[in-house]
Amino acid sequence: MARLHMVLLALLPIVLILTVLSEVESAAVKDGKEKVSERKGSSKKVFVPASDASNFFKHRSRRSPKLYAEYLAEHKLQLAASERRREYYEEQSNEYENHLEENRNEQYERNRENTEQWREYHYDGLYPQYPHHRPYG
């Protein structure tokens, strides 16, 4: 029961604030005393008929030629896109080549170490490592 009283006491100030604020008008809101004709005139400046709105972005028909500026703009966009694409693929190929080179170097080093260990293990010091290095005698 005490919890219910606590919740109601917490909600009471919120209800009072909302009721007071609903009666107060903001300073930015107009009081509605302007003429109706002025409202309709301003709305005509903002809103256009549906037929004009649907054709707003269609400045030219499909078969009419493009303007030279449109061709230039499209060409610049295509050049920029192809340049970005070329740089991306070049960077990817460089990274791949570096990766391959590192792998080859690591593999060569491991192979050389294994060979060196094998030679050290099998060489007893009594004769040269390779038969073609033996002196003739």
Rank of each mutant, 00 (worst) to 15 (best):
Y88S: 01
S61L: 13
L77E: 12
S61R: 15
L77D: 08
E101S: 09
R63N: 09
E91C: 02
A81H: 13
A69G: 03
H99L: 06
H75E: 11
P65K: 11
E74N: 14
L72D: 11
L79T: 01
L77F: 12
E90N: 13
K76F: 11
R63W: 12
Y88Q: 05
S93C: 03
A69C: 06
R86C: 03
S82D: 14
R62M: 00
A80I: 03
L72P: 08
A80N: 07
R60K: 15
R63S: 01
Y89G: 00
Q92C: 09
L100G: 02
A81T: 11
R63H: 09
L100M: 10
N94D: 09
K66C: 00
K66V: 01
R86W: 13
R60E: 03
P65N: 00
S64V: 01
P65R: 09
A73G: 01
E87H: 12
H59G: 06
R86N: 07
N94K: 15
E74Y: 07
Y96M: 05
Y71K: 11
K66E: 04
A73H: 08
S93L: 15
Q92V: 14
Y88L: 04
Q78A: 02
H75T: 11
S64G: 03
H75Y: 12
E70Q: 11
P65S: 03
N98C: 06
A81D: 13
H75D: 12
A73P: 05
R62L: 00
R86Q: 06
R63I: 00
